[in-house]
Each structure stands twice: as C-alpha cells, then as structure tokens.
Design a binder for these strands. Structure first.
Lengths: 337, 337
DNA sequence: ATGAAAGCGCTAACAT
DNA sequence: ATGTTAGCGCTTTCAT
C-alpha cells in the first residue's frame, strides 16, 4: 500500500520520459498511439495514481471546493450538499465540508484554507463574514459564491430564495384561513435571512390590517428546543395566538411538540406553518405545512456559478433567485371560533 | 488574495534563510530568540500560510482523514461526524466526507484518495469493501478504522455497538408489554448490521417461544418510504402484527405514517420501536421508542483509534463496543386485547 | 543557531 | 511526437 508507483517508475519500465507519461495520462492528445496505449495499460496494471500534492503544487490548483455551513448537524444542508457534490464531481472537483458553528475563528480558518491551497473556491452559507476589520477587503476577489444567506456590499454572486415573499405567502395562507392572532417565531434576528422572513410576516399582517401584539415575535435560533421554549412563552401571553408562522421546520417541530404538551390540538386549536420542508416534515404528525425550497437545485446552481468563476468567467452580479412553494399539509386549518 | 506570501518572502525581508523561517514557524525549538520572534511577527503581519500542497508533498502527509458513509443524506451520520471532527481538529487533522451511495465505483474512488495522498487514513462506515478480487489484500495494511458496520476477515480495528443485544432488548420490551405478534422491518439483509439486528429480534422471539409467521420479516433499506411500503404489506397479511420492531428510525417514521393512513392508532393498536434515536425522534408524535446510540462518542472513539494508528501505534485487535440504551417513549404500549 | 542544497512528484516551457 | 530541463513551495539533511 505504501510503495505507490510514480510517473518515473512507469517511464523507466517503458523506456520513455516522465513527461511523455504525464502527457499520456492527461489526455493531452500529444502522445502517439503505440506509446499511448502502452503507457495507459501499464499505469492501470500498476494501479498508478498521480500524487495530488505534487500535482496541486505544480498546477496551483486543488480541484476542490469548500462548502461552509453554520451547522453540519442540520440535515437541511445535506440535500444542498448533494446538489453541490454532483455538480462538482462532474467537473472533477471534490467537495470539502466546513462547519463553523457560528464561531468566528472557525470561519477565518476556512477562508485560510482557500489561501493555503486546500481548496480553489468556496460556497458560503453562513450569513456573515468573520468580524475582523479589513476582512472583507482581503477576500473581496476570492472565488466565493454565497448561497441561502446574503453578504452585502461584498460583490459576491448569490444564490437565494425570496425569503420575504415566501414568508408573506405563508402568512397569507393563515390569514386566508381566518386567523387574526398570528405570531411569528423568528430566526436569529440580526441576520438577513431571519429579517427577511420576519419582514414577510409583517408585510402580510400589515396588508390585512392585523396587529402584532407585544410578544408575538419571539426571536429564536433555528433549534428544536428553542421552538418549544418560545412556544411556551407565547401561551403565557394574555391573548395567545391561534396560528404561528415559524421561521424553520426544526423549530416548528418543537413548537408543535410543546403545543401538544399544553393540551392544544394542531391544527384544531392552533395552526402552524414552518419553513424548509425537511425530509421528515411530511411524515411528521400532523404532516407539516411548510415552505419548500429546491435544495438540490440551489446546490447545483451555486456550484455551477462557482465553476464558472473558477474557469475565469465573470459571475452574474445579480443574485439567482430560486422558486419556493408553500406545501399545504396537515398543520393548518381554519381559525377556531 | 492571489499573491500569497511564501516562506522565501519572509526570509528575504528578514535577511535570513528560508530554512530558518521554516524552522521558526514549526516550533522546532531550533531558532534563537531574537530571530524567532521577528519571523513569527512578520509571518503574522503578512498573514502567511504555508502552502499545503508543498508541505504535503515534502512530508508525505496530508493531515486529513476521510470519513466514508453510505449516504450523507442520513442525518444519523452527522453527529458521528461531529465527534470525528472534534477529535481530528484537536490533533490538527481535517476531515473529508465521502459519500458512496452504495456504489462500488465510488467506494473504490475513496480508497484511491488514500493512495494518492488526499488523506492519510479513513473511517469507513459502509459495511462492505468494493467488489473486486484481491481488493481486500490490496488495502489490508492501510490505516483504516471501521465504525458501526463490520468488515470481517480484514483485521481492521472496529468501533461497534452490540446490535444484536440492543435489538433483542428492544423486542423483549415489546414482549414484556404482552405482544405476541411482533414483526420486524429489517435493514438490507446481506449486510452484517442488518443481520445482527434481525438476529436479536429472532433470539428474543425464540426465547419467548413466539413464532415468526411468513411475511413478518420484510427486508428494507433504511429509507423512509420503504418503511411505509413494507408496513402496508404487513397489514395485508392474514394475521397482521400488533407490534413492529423497525431496524432504524427513518423507516419507523414511515411505518407510523402508514399506520395512521391505515386508520390504526400508535400505540393503542400497534406498537413501534425504532433504532437510532434521531434528533427528531423525541419531538415526533408520538415520541418514538427507540434504541439510542452514543453517536458523538462513536465518532470520537473511531478517530482516536485512527490517530493512534497514524502515529504508529498498533490498533486494538478486538472491537471497541459502545453502550446503547432503549429509550422508552410514546410508541409502545400494552398489546391490545 | 543558521545557511546551503537537495529533492518530494509532478507539469509545462522549450527544445528537437 | 517525444525528450530535457526547470521549478512549484516546502522541509530536511548536511555543513558551518
């Protein structure tokens, strides 16, 4: 296992030069037929694999891209990864996963991996840049595509969904069902994605002339147990809601779980809408009404953009916006009397 | 971004040799104090990062390990990844994710990544080796740790759970509740993990003197919709079960979803036990009774073993067996009259 | 304690 | 169409 053959071994055994072997193995079309086959055959026979470090050093490419997310633990990212991976593989790139856990140091680390040649480009899905002065300037011309989240004023190409529109649409569905007291469990709010979804909620409420009472917009963090906690708080208000629009499915599961503990029926007493459409959302009970995003497609698009940049193309300056659909399932029903 | 400083840049600016810079930056303890600090300061100031390809080429190490799973789409692996990653990072290694989707070609590809220097070692979680003659021999002495699944006759160190014992325990719980007609939705059955879980089921049934009627052991593949399909088939049998032990949570969700469609109540009409304890299993309705595995711990242990091998240590020859616990929640109840 | 020089395995000019 | 040569950026003998 450890005595890996190198190009020179093949060259010596065949009485040709290392360069010829290299050329033959890289489909350069510069090696003539008797030699070509002999080299390829022997390479296969010897189970030859080019040493990536040597090649990368020479070509200054890693043929790898970095996909950085804020939490690998969130299955939501997995399908995006699949889209990214499929597209990357087809182009001969491999994909490295980066996990920041919202830690600024780790964010920096992944940017460093770009600089030290670990990867050639990056798909960033953590709505922020490391908090260091001058950081933005130092990476402004790096091959980076931002997906799902937005990084403003950086000039990076983006792949987005219309969070505000989708949220508004979801809340309108609730309003159409006759709900008046609709609360919103939001994401971490300084972040753009959370703000957009909340804006959509507010816009729908305003358009319908519905008030947003104090305490109707608790701020969450996309985690299951936070959904539980915030739901509990909501029902200690003097006027609890009859419907809740939750910023993601994971928290929505927590909300529904807590509702059940409180003895409330979903959707008879309280309607719930989520956002993401996780693979379990339909099998959940009741099947979750939620906003579905084309995740694989998002991954594919982001990677395609990145490949474009990597091959010298100029990336689109306006973001690609992917369509969402509201999946109306079992957690929403007409408002109780 | 593209004009990355190299060791020589630092050396020139400081009037020292490249070798000294390299030594200073690698904590070799061979550089004296006035120089040492000057080098380190300048390196930081210039934001220097050693080029990994050059370093790896020279040292013949990648400082990376490969974690290969059969389906990145399964959230089950994410927590294991977290354990692996934490341990790896602490030792200065990064972790690459490999996804085989049960495709033999892709399996080979990841083994190749070991040979071409992409990674130094591998944590394998796909209960099988690529089907090529002589393959086992060709990788027998590679730094590989097998986790969750077993690869027999290969001499690789393993991190396992007692699948059979845990399964048996789960079924005994059902039996203790008075169930007689207990079915088992298994995993893909030529594979050892699936077989062990099924053996546990059979053992418990045999010990209680309970028969396993025809059709009571449908073979699945760990996927949600397969759980649905197999559950449906189970209830077309002349004597349907009153309890089902399902080989993983994902299929268990499908089973429960289907049960509901069939108008059957869980757990009043049918009890269900899963295996895995996914992060959503408790928030599911009813909260899923299931076998919980120490996932993070499994990842940590596997990576620790791999580090040990990588640093020249001899790996334990007998597998590390991690404890499981049966979480009794809301999907199991006494057998209906 | 530091420098000089060699070389990891590969690819890409530049010859021929 | 193939060989020769140089060098990617780093670490590591071997000198001094």
């Amino acid at each position: 296992m450890n005595d890996r053959p190198k190009i020179k071994d093949i060259a010596v055994r065949l009485g040709v030069s290392a360069a010829t072997v290299s050329r033959a193995l890289s489909d350069s079309g510069l090696v003539a037929e008797p030699t070509l086959s002999r080299i390829r055959d022997l390479a296969r026979e010897m189970n030859y694999r080019p040493n990536v470090s040597a090649r990368n050093l020479r070509t200054k490419k890693a043929m790898a891209v970095l996909m950085v997310v804020r939490d690998v633990g969130n299955p939501f990212y997995l399908e995006i990864l699949k889209g990214v991976e499929a597209t990357a593989r087809a182009a001969g790139y491999s994909v490295l996963m980066g996990n920041t856990e919202n830690d600024s140091d780790r964010e920096v680390e992944y940017f460093d991996m770009l600089r030290d040649g670990h990867a050639d480009g990056m798909i960033l899905m953590t709505g922020k840049l490391p908090e260091r002065e001058g950081f933005l300037a130092s990476v402004a011309d790096a091959p980076i595509v931002v997906a799902l989240e937005a990084i403003e004023n950086a000039g990076f190409p983006h792949v987005l969904i219309d969070n505000q529109g989708a949220a508004q649409n979801a809340v309108e569905h609730l309003i159409g069902l006759g709900h008046k007291r609709i609360a919103h469990v939001s994401g971490p709010v300084p972040e753009i994605m959370s703000i957009h979804r909340r804006d959509g909620y507010r816009k729908a409420m305003a358009a319908a002339g519905l008030p947003i009472p104090d305490g109707y917009e608790p701020v969450g963090d996309y985690l299951l147990h936070t959904g539980q906690r915030l739901c509990h708080a909501l029902f200690e208000l003097p006027q609890p809601p009859t419907a809740i629009f939750v910023a993601n499915d994971e928290m929505a599961f927590g909300v529904i779980h807590e509702l059940r503990k409180l003895g409330l029926d979903v959707p008879a007493d309280v309607s719930v809408v989520g956002f993401d459409d996780l693979f379990l959302s339909e099998a959940f009970y009741p099947p979750l009404t939620t906003v579905s995003q084309p995740r694989t497609e998002i991954g594919r698009t982001a990677m395609t953009m990145l490949l474009d940049i990597l091959s010298g193309g100029l990336a689109a300056r306006q973001p690609a916006t992917m369509p969402t659909t509201l999946k109306i399932r079992g957690t929403t029903a007409p408002a109780p009397k």
